Amino acid sequence: MFLKLGDNVPKGSFGWPILGETLGFLKPHPSNTIGAFLQDHCSSITKSKPEFFNDIERIAVQILNSWKDKQQVMFCEEARKARSRISSRVKAIIEERRSRNGRSCGVRNDFLEILLSVDTLSEDEKVSFVLDSLLGGYETTSLLMAMVVHLLGQSPTASEQLKVINEALRYGNIVKFVHRKALKDVKFRDHLIPSGWKVLPVFTAVHLDSSVHADALQFHPWRWEAQDQTCKKFTPFGGGSRCCPGSELAKIEIAFFLHHLLQNFRWTAEDVDQPMAYPYVEFGKGLLINLDRCSI
């Protein structure tokens, strides 16, 4: 493989002669450390877990501080405050790609390059397409946040105890189904699913099944005190080898936001605004809430 100036390859050296940096990698070090070699070669842009937590908390506090003089907020818009920043970043990447178009030595076959080659889409449509592709990691978290606020507004007791995230996932069904493909013939009960057929496992059918979850059509956060959260009856993040890798991150983000939200505000909904599936879940009126600042 030939590298050219500007290639964003990992930090390090090929070394000379044959051994390169192998001896440095193998240098003895205390087993409860990662060693000087890895410490030196770890990317400076990689953030540690506590530092990332600080970022999450800082953003949550920043959003809530902007509400201090407001009596109402359109919560769905507030939960998506980052969308404009992401949009600006995507536009900048598109412009950078176009500016070097024709000067690249190789042929790029990534998603964005293919999208840029589509002449029937406008600039804004291409940016929107990229943002929509981020649904799994961004839109679902902001929607879960809105769902939790919506349900907590109807349950003051749950608000005080904050036992709500899993129940919002079960009851709200932010991801209604997933797409799967049968890699071989699958027999399910009395049915045969031939190899190559597309299958849509519908999570809602399980989450709202009263034979699986008692009083399934009722919002009841305390069910999780006795119910196994890792069982196959609860699959808001998928399951098995295809389980969402961002599941714990989403819960952490919501937990940080709820902690500061409940310390500073109580709220009620302006109008009855039920989450509807189109098929993605959305609040038709944007979830307008009345704010009441509290002191604890």
Rank of each mutant, 00 (worst) to 15 (best):
S104V: 09
D119W: 05
F75E: 02
I86T: 09
E139P: 07
T141D: 00
V127D: 00
S142Q: 03
T141N: 03
F75Y: 11
S133N: 14
S88W: 03
A82Y: 15
D69W: 06
Q72R: 11
F75V: 02
K126S: 03
M74Q: 14
L116W: 05
E139G: 04
F111C: 02
L115P: 00
K91H: 09
Q71E: 15
G137W: 07
R97Y: 03
S142A: 15
E123H: 08
R98K: 15
F129R: 09
K68S: 13
S88F: 06
H150R: 11
K81W: 06
L116Q: 08
L143H: 05
D119A: 06
R98I: 08
E123F: 05
D110T: 04
L121D: 02
I86F: 13
K70D: 09
L115Y: 04
Y138L: 09
D119P: 07
I93F: 07
E78P: 01
E96W: 03
I94L: 08
I93R: 05
E113V: 06
Y138K: 07
V90T: 06
I93M: 09
N109R: 14
V73T: 02
S104C: 12
R85V: 12
R103N: 14
D110Q: 04
L116I: 05
E78G: 00
A82F: 15
E139H: 07
S104T: 10
S88I: 01
S128Y: 03
C105T: 14
W67Q: 00
E113D: 15
K91Y: 05
E77F: 02
D124I: 05
G137M: 03
M147I: 15
I114F: 12
V73K: 00
G136I: 07
K91P: 02
L143E: 03
C76I: 07
I86Y: 08
Q71A: 10
T141A: 12
N109A: 06
R100L: 07
L134S: 02
V118F: 13
A79C: 03
Q71V: 09
A79S: 09
S122Q: 04
G136D: 07
V130M: 08
A92N: 07
N101Y: 11
R85Y: 12
S142L: 01
A79L: 00
F129V: 10
V90A: 06
I86H: 04
M74A: 11
S128I: 04
L144P: 02
G106Y: 12
Q72L: 10
T120M: 06
I94R: 00
G106W: 10
L144D: 01
V118R: 15
D110G: 01
R85K: 14
E125Q: 14
H150F: 12
G102P: 01
S133P: 02
K126W: 01
F75D: 00
N101I: 06
R100M: 08
E95I: 09
S117G: 13
D69T: 12
L144H: 04
L115T: 03
L143I: 09
V73E: 00
R108Y: 10
V107H: 13
E113G: 10
M74H: 11
V118Q: 15
R89A: 14
I114M: 13
V149Q: 02
G136V: 06
L134K: 05
T140P: 04
E95H: 06
V130A: 02
R83M: 11
T120I: 09
E78F: 01
M145A: 08
L121Y: 08
V149R: 02
R108T: 08
G136T: 05
S128A: 14
E125A: 11
